[in-house]
Structures are given as structure tokens and as C-alpha cells.
């Protein structure tokens, strides 16, 4: 029996497992997908939880319910990936060898990577890139009666690059509905040169910010957070004060990839940006937020990457040339 192992049962991993199960004969191929837990969060919904628009019931499901029959789901922490030995090791379920490996382990926020941010988290400093962070932020926003709300991107790349601006717009709407918008100052502090990464979008979004009375502070490379003074500082010494800080901390790939020696220092796996394969690893493919591909970290990107992988992996199995190429687009 040949073995296809998939790491990560989030958006990318689940899509790949279901796609490949349709193609591969159950008598020839065993498909195993490994993840640390059985919670599947609809991550686009995170943004709406702090404002009471999305509830836990609406955006939290189980991973297992989205996997087709014939896919083995292993719940255990991943502790090592060894491309040379063609095997992966888990904390509690042993080692799994593979003929083909698909990696989709995503990325996550790391507040502790910024001086003062980890220590200050939860004390007038919040975020919305994990479900528990969203719940804490919802409580904090409900108790916020006025002052300066700063939305800050620590550094790029981040998941869903437009989400911080959406958050600022939603905050504008939220405080309007509460009747306290005139008591709240909203400032969007970003390391980018403007509101967004692309010029056409930046022009439109800058205008939208002006209409909504949201101040944009560009070119701000976050250096530290001082929770006592309630100030964020950039590397060039610029300071911005806040009453509530909504932080988008640095995003890192999976620590296991760093520990396994197969990623860059940020935990992102280097791959060919068109084939999504690591160099000299013909039976390994990587998709989603965990690659170093210069594209948006978003489920839509993973979706289109999954189509490329599906075609090329089947060509690889059938001994044919692999023609599909990813162009990294999201829409």
C-alpha cells in the first residue's frame, strides 16, 4: 500500500485530502492527514467575532466532519519532518512514512517576538488572529467608552493583508452604532507606504479612511510596545500613543519546520513559487500560508494552489510531465 501523508487539516490540507481521495484507488493508496487538534475555524470569521457579528457556533466546526470517508485523521502534535528518511514524527501517535508528502501547516501570530508586546498582551492590547484573542477583544471593545484605538500591523507578511483595514472600518461602524464614535479616535498604523500594498487599492482605501475619519500612519516599523506608557515605538523612534491597541503581531510558520531544519528563520518553507515544491524533493508539495511564496497568505490562494497540486501530483503518480504552474493569485 502506498502512502500519501498530509500535514495540517486546515483549509489547504482538507482540500487536498478530499481532492486526492477522489483520484486515488483505496486499494492502492492510503491517505493520512495529521493535525494537532480537531477544531476547524473559519478564519475569515475571526474579524467579525469582536463585533458580535459572528458567533463561535457559526465559525467553529470539527475538522473530521469535512474529511471524506477513506481518509485517516490522526490527531497529534507534529514534532519532526524528515525529508531524507521520508517520514514524519508525531508526539503521541508515532512515526509515519510516506511516498508523497503534502504540507499545509499554515502560520500563526507571535506577539512575543516584539519587545513588550507579549508581556502587555491582554492589558489594553488585543488581537483577532486566534479565536481566543477574538473573544477577549470582544469583551474589551464592549467596555471601551472612548479614547484612542490604534490598529497596528507589526510587520509583513501577515494573513489576509486587507483584514486590518477591514477591522478599522468595522470599528468605525461599531462605535457609530454604539453612539460613541465622536469619543473614539481611530488610527491605522502600518509598515506599508500607504493604506494597502497595491496602488489602485491604496488610493480607494485611503479615500475611504478619510471619509470615515480614520488616520493613517504609514512607514511605521514596530520596534517595541510600552504597556505602562501605552505607547508603540518604531525603530526610527517615532511614537504613537493608544488607549486600546489592536495588534497584528509578526506571523511565523510552524515551529516544527524550524526545528526540523527545512524552513527559513521565520518558519516558512522555501519552495519554487510556480511548482510549490522544495528543491530536489520530487515527492513533496507545500501549499497555503506556510510557504515562502511572495503572495497573499489567504485561503483563496491555497484554493488555487490546491488545483495546481492536484494536477501535478496525479501527473507525478502516473509518470507524466507536470505542466500546472501556480501564479499566486487570490481572486
Amino acid at each position: 500500500m502506498k502512502k500519501l501523508v498530509i500535514l495540517g487539516a486546515g483549509c489547504g490540507g482538507t482540500m487536498m485530502a478530499n481532492k486526492m481521495r477522489k483520484h486515488l484507488d483505496r486499494n492502492e493508496w492510503n491517505i493520512t492527514i495529521i493535525d494537532k487538534d480537531n477544531i476547524h475555524d473559519y478564519q475569515p470569521g475571526y474579524l467579525f467575532v469582536p463585533f458580535g457579528i459572528n458567533t463561535e457556533r457559526e465559525i467553529r466546526k470539527t475538522k473530521r466532519e469535512f474529511l471524506k470517508p477513506g481518509i485517516d485523521f490522526v490527531i497529534s502534535e507534529l514534532v519532526n519532518v524528515d525529508w531524507d528518511k521520508q517520514q514524519v514524527t508525531t508526539a503521541t501517535r508515532g512515526t509515519f512514512s510516506y511516498d508523497i508528502l503534502i504540507m499545509s501547516t499554515g502560520c500563526d501570530v507571535r506577539p512575543e517576538e516584539v519587545e513588550g508586546l507579549g508581556e502587555t498582551w491582554g492589558k489594553d492590547v488585543y488581537g483577532y488572529y486566534r479565536f481566543d484573542h477574538c473573544v477577549d477583544l470582544k469583551k474589551a471593545l464592549a467596555g471601551f467608552e472612548g479614547g484612542k484605538l490604534v490598529v497596528n500591523i507589526a510587520e509583513m507578511p501577515i494573513k489576509c493583508p486587507v483584514a486590518p483595514l477591514e477591522f478599522a472600518f468595522l470599528a468605525d461602524w461599531y462605535f457609530h452604532t454604539r453612539g460613541i464614535r465622536d469619543k473614539v479616535e481611530i488610527e491605522f498604523v502600518t509598515p506599508l507606504t500607504g493604506a494597502f500594498t497595491k496602488p489602485v487599492a491604496t488610493a480607494v482605501l485611503t479615500s475611504a479612511c478619510e471619509q470615515k475619519n480614520i488616520k493613517i500612519t504609514p512607514n511605521f516599523a514596530l520596534g517595541s510596545v510600552d504597556g505602562e506608557r501605552k505607547v508603540i515605538s518604531s525603530y526610527d523612534g517615532t511614537e504613537v500613543d493608544y488607549d486600546m491597541l489592536v495588534s497584528i503581531p509578526p506571523n511565523f510558520g510552524s515551529q516544527v519546520m524550524i526545528d526540523s531544519g527545512i524552513s527559513d528563520p521565520m518558519g516558512y518553507i522555501p519552495v519554487d513559487k510556480h511548482t510549490l515544491q522544495p528543491k530536489d524533493r520530487p515527492n513533496v508539495w507545500v501549499l497555503g500560508d506556510g510557504t515562502n511564496v511572495p503572495t497573499s497568505k489567504a485561503g483563496a490562494v491555497a484554493h488555487f494552489q490546491a488545483d495546481i497540486l492536484e494536477e501535478n501530483i496525479m501527473a507525478y503518480i502516473n509518470g507524466e510531465a507536470q505542466h500546472a504552474r501556480s501564479d499566486g493569485h487570490a481572486l
Binding site: 482538507t14 478530499n18 475569515p44 485561503g299 488555487f304 490546491a306 495546481i308
Partner: peptide, 24 residues
């Protein structure tokens, strides 16, 4: 659109449904 996308995410995307050509 966001509400529709959530439905599509759970009912089409995760199932591996082909939704169109992957090229831009």
C-alpha cells in the same frame, strides 16, 4: 457576498470542488 462565501467555504471549497481555472 461574505455570507455567501462562508457557505461556499464549508460546502464547496473544503470538499475540494473545482470552482474554475486556477490561472488568474
Amino acid at each position: 457576498s461574505k455570507l455567501l462565501f462562508k457557505w461556499a467555504y464549508f460546502n464547496l471549497l473544503l470538499c475540494g470542488t473545482w470552482l474554475g481555472p486556477p490561472a488568474m
